[in-house]
């Protein structure tokens, strides 16, 4: 049996997408689940102002949490770099994007760059590699496909929502968990020429032909593909129909072999 790996999970102060109230980010709880499945020694890391809900992560199977106290207007990057420098984690897990802050998903990449770690995005499962200090990562791709990667540790891995569901919240586990509070590094964010206002949903693009047409035509455009007017075979013998269908599916490229 190998030594249990040292894993750090980055936790962010999330907000619920509907109610807007503070709550843990689901994909970060899934990251805790992935780390637990590795049998790792886990530490949660959060840099930010005091918050009630950060400790809720303890209820989802995390034993220890380090809270780096910084101000509302401070950038968490510097504090996290310093903390991870002392933690000596073989693996850093993070969600892909936050939920309720800047939501640009840039922090894991900036952190990895500063620490010289490689980034592996969108993990849906983790396993120990065949050699020491390697990790097998199953990466979730669109359309349910996966990619198996072997990565040399240390590395930073972001977690995909397709990972196994997190452990349900347990109040006893939350009480049992340890929160260590430390002072973070104050580093005010640089000013950016960004104007902020209340969110306005933007219309999604729909078919161009719909503009100014009748309601029936708009419905048609919304339910019809751009490439209309296909081939129609009327009452072919079943064998011929089957041959035509298979040839067509092969042309499109959905049928292998």
């Amino acid at each position: 049996m190998r030594e249990p790996m040292n894993v750090a999970v980055l936790l962010s102060a999330g907000h619920h997408p509907v109610s807007g109230r503070a709550c843990p980010v689901p994909v970060e709880m899934q990251a805790i689940g992935l780390g637990n499945a590795l049998g790792a020694e886990m530490t949660g890391l959060h840099a930010g102002p005091a918050s009630e809900t950060i400790a809720d992560a303890l209820g989802h199977g995390l034993a220890r949490l380090v809270h780096l106290k910084i101000g509302e207007a401070d950038d968490p990057l510097a504090s996290l770099i310093a903390a991870l420098g002392t933690e000596k984690s073989a693996l850093v897990l993070a969600g892909r994007v936050g939920q309720g802050g800047e939501d640009s998903g840039l922090l894991p990449y900036a952190l990895a760059r500063a620490l010289g770690l490689p980034v592996v995005p969108d993990a849906s499962a983790l396993r120990e590699g065949p050699e020491p200090s390697t990790l097998l990562v199953e990466q979730a791709l669109p359309r349910g496909a996966r990619r198996r990667l072997m990565v040399r540790l240390p590395a930073l891995v972001t977690v995909h929502p397709a990972a196994p569901a997190p452990l349900p919240f347990a109040y006893a586990a939350r009480r049992r968990g340890v929160v260590e509070e430390r002072a973070g590094i104050a580093s005010p964010r640089g000013e950016r020429a960004i104007e902020e206002r209340a969110y306005r949903p933007r219309p999604k693009l729909i078919a161009k032909s719909a503009a100014g047409a009748s309601a029936a035509e708009r419905l048609k455009a919304a339910t019809e593909a751009a490439s209309g007017g296909g081939r129609v075979l009327v009452d072919p013998p079943p064998e011929e129909a089957a041959r035509e269908i298979l040839a067509h599916l092969r042309d499109i490229g959905v049928l292998r072999g």
């Binding site: 339910t223 019809e224 593909a225 490439s227 209309g228 296909g230 081939r231 129609v232 075979l233 009327v234 009452d235 072919p236 079943p238 064998e239 129909a241 089957a242 035509e244 269908i245 298979l246 067509h248």
Partner: peptide
């Protein structure tokens, strides 16, 4: 709507396929 449409009984086309 279909790019290839077959006007036939599906119960006969499926075994043929």
């Amino acid at each position: 709507r279909a790019g290839l449409a077959v006007v036939a009984d599906a119960q006969k086309v499926m075994p043929a396929l």
